[in-house]
Nucleic acid binder design. Sequence first.
RNA 1: GCAGGCGUGGCGAAAUUGGCAGACGCACUAGACUUAGGAUCUAGCGGAGCAAUCCAUGGGGGUUCAAGUCCCUUCGCCUGCACCA
Length: 942
Amino acid sequence: MYNTKEIEEKWIKYWEENQTFKTNLRDFEKPKYYALDMFPYPSGVGLHAGHPEGYTATDIVCRMKRMQGFNVLHPMGFDSFGLPAEQYAIKTGNHPGKFTEENIKTFTDQLKMLGLSYDWDLCISTSDSSYYKWTQWIFKNLYEDGLAKLVEMPVNWCEELGTVLANDEVIDGKSERGGFPVIRKNMKQWVIDIPKYAEKLLNGLEEIDWPESTKEIQRNWIGKSIGASVDFKIEGSSKTFTVFTTRCDTLFGATYCVLSPEHKLVDEITSEEQKEKVQEYKKICASKSELERTSINKEKTGVFTGAFAINPANNKSIPIWISDYVLASYGTGAIMAVPAHDERDYEFAKKFDLEIIPVIEQITGEKRENETSKKSIVAVLYDETKDKYLTLNWGNLGGRLFIGGTIEEGETEEECAIREIGEETGYTDIELITKILPINHHYYAYNKNQAYEIESTGFLFKLKSSKSIDNNLDKEEQNKFKLEWVDKKAIEKEVKDELHFTTFNNVLNPGAYTGNGKMINSEFLNGITNKQEAINKMLTYLEEHKIGKKQVNYKIREWIFARQRYWGEPIPIVHFEDGEMCALKDEDLPLVLPELEDYSPNKDGSSPLNKATSWVNINYNNRPGKLETSTMPGSAGSSWYFLRYIDPHNDKCLADKELLKHWMPVDLYVGGPEHAVGHLLYSRMWNHYLYDKGFVPTEEPFKKLVHQGMILGSNGIKMGKRYPEYSVNPNDIVNKYGADTLRFYEMFMGPLEADKPWNNDGVEGSKKFLDRVWRLYTEEEKISEEENKNLEKIYHQTVKKVTEDYESLNFNTAISAMMIFINAVYKENVFPLKYAENFIKLLNPIAPFITEELWQFLGHDKTISYEAWPTYDKEKIQDDLINVAVQVNGKLRGTMEVPVNTSNEELLRLAKELENVNKHLIDKEIIKEIVVPNKIVNIVIK
RNA sequence: GCAGGCGUGGCGAAAUUGGCAGACGCACUAGACUUAGGAUCUAGCGGAGCAAUCCAUGGGGGUUCAAGUCCCUUCGCCUGCACCA
């Protein structure tokens, strides 16, 4: 209909020549608004269909805010260090910088083509030495504050990529990029001590407006747990080791200890005869890749060291094992094992036949006053041939139960169970299958008028043959119940007794009991039923005896900060010949990457920078040394770029403090959810650090965060190499339909946060609507100085809805409101000029090109970008007449149009007059009448 | 396995505090204008039924005058974590 190409080129040129979107950063008069997009990695293929979505979303908000009088900061830049450019350089021998520069040019043109209102003067690239000077400067500060360190530690090594990777770059034991296997290897590495900031990063989440799911991911990643450290002595040695536990209340149940295979003490304590086995096991573990270690976690493995530890609670001697189910990197790399109350320990103990001591009893029934204590058993007898269980049907004396009885003097639980089975059922050819942990049961015997507390042990026996003896129980007792074999379903339905039912469940799924209960076998803790009370009491005991203390532990590990690659920020550190090192002085930054003949990695896995001998070997402070040759990871430059936009050309500091104070924090940050634990956590950490140093004004950098969803192919599957025929290139869409249509369509597809499949018919529809708007203004000749009362209400409603929806990023419903408005205008003959002008303003943030053109068409000669945003009149939105629904018994029987705020009585009267309502009321008794003013009437009849 | 999210027409989706389910758009159907229409306009469009009416928000149950919305339970899909002591 209209020539999109011509119009769009015209306005791109206009905005550029007039510097329409230049931000005066020092204008502190207007309120500020800082909207940020996650800057892209400038790959060779240019923008994909997903980019415009998030970028349009922030652009809409920015354009509205400008019109509302805000001073808006809306910058764009490039995360330009990274692997593809390096691989290109290896292949072609060209410098990756040139390649990167070309890609940035392509990206910039594409972004401009989309009509995004960035201030391009603020554009930054992380690979620009004037930018990475400050990345290096921050690193230097971290180093001097002891937060960046060179440490020997097990790291994720990827042979294929020839580099170390951070934890968030390893997915299921494979590299995030390329999917190559990753193994654990001890290496000297630069790390950043992000665990030092664990608590601050955790607390900071409380005050920011982020998606709850992302906060939860970060909380999980940080993984705080509160527990205790407990020291264990090694028998016959002066050595000790410490374990971390969240359940120190179960210490009396610790029947063995496990060290991780990498634990320092393993070699020292291993006995002569176990040495060979231990060495072999260690070797197997070391050679396992991360993938094998996690995926083969079904079956527990481990080896006894031959050494014993002393349980500090009861001085019992307990064996020390090693196993890879204990991780070297978490806690102290050693645990106390309480098989009765930890699933993993239970599994391990069962496999290696280690002792299991219960210290917590599951409680069933309700505790009463003056209980009498006794010990008893519950036995479940199973007949495999019939797949049925033996029950005693007591009728109204107690319903369906299993075999139960009280333990007699001098009898073990097992003996009691066998005796009771014999006495009550006569079966003798039975085999013990399972014995479960004791249950603490409370009940009241009405016939004896007595409350009981029993310690009940449950058993599962298998019937080997139906051989039975005539039992010697007296007939009177036996007549009270009937023996019945029933199936599982019947038991689940009919066994009501809590003890018997719980026993049944537990014997079928035997395992550790991890719930709350009553402490037993634990001396000074015995009888306690409150978990926290037991933990506190044990903590006091540990501290009094100086064998342990309260301890907080975090899952988050050090951020591995070095890559053996070329295309990254050089780490500004000099290693002197005597092993000392120092950071470069401020005036020696930036440390610029040298050019190389050959960018391929060295065979020994060392950084390509090693080849630049004249660069590496330097004399610093009159001492000969070598520059560090590892470079920083991709996440370095992106961890602070949002600060640099505020003052991108400053060569005195990372950004002017006064400007930072005015502009931080970022008001709206839009980007994909895939950065939840990488970039978004690292950025927060750097910002917290810079805040602590007094360089930035806020602890948290991103006040509000929103994740845009993925744009899927029309087949509903992620666009990409797999289904190129379903992929969409934004260039093609812009060429065919124009950038306005692309922006409009992507905003209309659905909620910003949702994943949405592409549908080309939808694009056509969006174009049709813009054409319809164009025709309304240029052909219909309805625009007039006259008023039109018919449009008043809908106009004000539209202004309200669009303004609110833009603010809350509900662009799809804002668009729907504008469509409703345009449909209404088409039905009228007069389109008042004021409405026509203001509608153009409402549409401008989504479709900037067509609206600039129509604004000009209406006789204006300047950009629309700074025209005042329309306001609405609340009074005019209110209807005089409204529709009220009338229901009979909750079913819609009619609607009526009544004046607003009609009284309840009147509403009811009118409702009953409605023909269709009346029909349903005839001969019926009204039992209730509900009236919700201005909404609904519901008449309930019988 | 644990945590979080989602499930509404043929499709993308709407639906303040529980208050007329399906707004808006696509596709589809019929009609108008046209030499023509993949343009435009008008009307229809969850299912069943001539209709009154009934049935419908993954399934089952509950709370309520009233449930897409709240509670319990179950199934399916997606995402994150995955031996975290």
